[in-house]
């Protein structure tokens, strides 16, 4: 297995396009001349097709952990496996071409057109021109930019458009794995929310295993199927779903990091429809919201109206009710 893997990347010829699991196995990174390791015995597995957000304060080693995957940084000990194969057995260039890479500063090539930027890796992989052009067009559709953008230069695009192209370029060769280093960190809040939403819906279509580095816990909650909290010194503090982290932080560090408002954040993860008892009827005059509303908004409505029970409607018809006590319970651990 490993013999052929040294020549072929993790995607290989047959795997390309399929999501593969990423597994960190007791990975430690120690820089010469530094006492404390940057990454300390990190073990975690990102299941195929899931997004894992690496969060933590500066110095937590989240970017280092990410760069270990495409070997921009080599581990001191331990191993990282993509689809069950150690990244250390691959030729480094081949490995990187099979991993989509998106960085905060985008780093589009200013002297190449958008089309040429997106087609960079397919060109190096020896695709023919027609296939590259067809792929570029499809990717522009995917990131919701007009196909005419292919002929423009990066300097002619806004920041948000540039990062969309950065995303398209990373997806060009249909890699099974994506690494994203604070990809939306430089965008204004409105553009960021927009592109986050687009990436979420795009992820449903493309199903990639994604490692997403961010310092923003709210972004991690929004984007991640799983969240890994790293503490200074590169130790994994907690790894789990957003709900687990918010509902059951393992220690004060994680509790502090996810924020004192973690109860409220947890409420934004679930809708009133999930919690509503369909058999219960809201008393007359009780406020009501549609089932898709988050518990957080539901709570806000209850508080604003001084009510104890919130009616829930689905497609215009009553669909049960939620009590303030139930919401309080959902917020707690």
């Amino acid at each position: 297995m490993t013999d052929s893997a040294t020549r072929e990347g993790p995607a290989g010829a047959t795997y390309r396009g399929e999501a593969l699991a990423i597994e960190f196995r007791h990975v430690t990174k120690r820089y010469p001349g530094q006492d404390a390791p940057a990454i300390d015995d990190l073990s975690l597995t990102v299941p195929p097709g899931e997004t894992c957000c690496l969060v933590g304060p500066s110095g937590g080693g989240k970017t280092t952990a990410m760069k270990l995957v495409n070997r921009l940084i080599e581990p001191t000990s331990g191993d990282i496996l993509i689809g069950g194969h150690s990244v250390l057995t691959y030729d480094v260039t081949t490995l990187r071409r099979d991993i989509g890479y998106v960085i905060q500063q985008v780093g589009l090539f200013p002297h190449m057109t958008i089309g040429a930027n997106i087609g960079t890796i397919p060109r190096l992989l020896g695709w023919d021109k027609e296939r590259i052009a067809e792929r570029t067009g499809r990717l522009l559709d995917l990131v919701r930019l007009d196909r005419s953008y292919a002929k423009r230069y990066p300097a002619q695009l806004s920041g948000g458009q540039q990062q969309r192209i950065g995303l398209a370029r990373a997806l060009a060769a249909d890699p099974p794995v994506m690494l994203m280093d604070e990809p939306f960190g430089a965008l204004d809040p409105i553009t960021r929310a927009e592109i986050q939403d687009e990436f979420l819906s795009l992820e449903n279509e493309i199903r990639k295993t994604v490692i997403f580095v961010t310092h923003d816990i709210d972004e991690a909650i929004k984007m991640g199927d799983k969240i890994a909290v790293l503490r200074p010194g590169g130790k994994l503090a907690q790894y789990g779903s957003a709900d687990e982290l918010l509902g059951d932080p393992v220690d004060d560090f994680v509790a502090d990091f996810v924020g004192a408002d973690r109860g409220l954040k947890r409420l934004s993860l679930r809708s009133v429809g999930e919690l509503a008892d369909p058999g219960r009827e809201a008393p007359p005059g009780a406020p009501s919201v549609v089932a898709g509303t988050s518990l957080r908004v539901g709570l806000s409505v209850l508080l604003a109206q001084g009510a104890e029970v919130l009616g829930v409607t689905k497609e215009g018809r009553p669909a049960g009710a939620v009590t303030l006590a139930e919401i309080r319970e959902a917020a707690g651990s």
């Binding site: 495409n70 921009l72 260039t93 081949t94 490995l95 990187r96 071409r97 099979d98 991993i99 890479y101 960085i103 500063q105 985008v106 780093g107 589009l108 090539f109 200013p110 002297h111 960079t120 890796i121 190096l124 950065g166 370029r169 990373a170 690494l179």
Partner: peptide, 22 residues
């Protein structure tokens, strides 16, 4: 720009390709 070279390297361009193409 350093981010242009960082992106090129991370994407899987060899140092020679980065010099000639970027």
């Amino acid at each position: 720009p350093p981010e242009v070279r960082a992106a090129a390297l991370g994407m899987g361009l060899t140092p020679g390709q980065i010099l000639v193409r970027i």
